[in-house]
Amino acid sequence: MSNLQVSVYRYNPETDSAPYMQEFQVDTKGRDLMVLDVLHLMKEQDSALAFRRSCREGVCGSDGMNMNGKNGLACITPLSEVIKDNKLVLRPLPGLPVIRDMVVDMGLFYKQYERIQPYLQNDTPAPAIERLQSPEDREKLDGLYECILCACCSTACPSFWWNPEKFVGPAGLLQSYRFLVDTRDTATQERLSELEDPFSVFRCRGIMNCVAVCPKGLNPTRAIGKIREMLLAEAT
């Protein structure tokens, strides 16, 4: 039982003409390891196995991957949560170009994040101290600012798979709403006018894969609904 069978996606463009799945036997010594620990044990067997990782505690967002069919962070996903028939299948995040093994090119994902102008804009002169904000207004940012840009949501979203250049995707839209709803931001109109085309927001079909996979328990679909409401209120 302590020997876990892991099937992992391998592709090195320098040596492989096509990607393939490689089988590993990993001795977990019966422990309920995190998937990232398993990857480290595999890397001891084959140092060429490439994957990203940093904080190993679920806050940096480096190790988003597809584990037994579901996106998540390897470092905070215990085997007991994903394992089926003592077998683990690891693939890179779907829908983005693979650079090598589990490492994907996140360029499109970051581009969509940058597109929503993910920074506070305020055209009034800054006071000598902080801008005041009531705890109630601050509370509106809860469930939004915690995003770690791991891309688990956007790469689980069929709308993002089909239109990654045009649809902002759940992660970017969650951040878009984070600034739309921040009482300190004064660029609401400009932000909304960038979003009313048929793709940026409206390509969301409410599939809610994003909500199902978010490792931080955030709800991009809800944020997207709120953006639509704001657009409607502005335009009618």
Binding site: D197, V201, F202
Partner: peptide, 18 residues
């Protein structure tokens, strides 16, 4: 972004509402 000339209302919001 280029306006989508073949969409119903040329705007995501109006299509969505319609």
């Amino acid at each position: 972004m280029v306006t989508n000339i073949t969409s119903f209302g040329r705007s995501g919001l109006s299509d969505w509402l319609m």
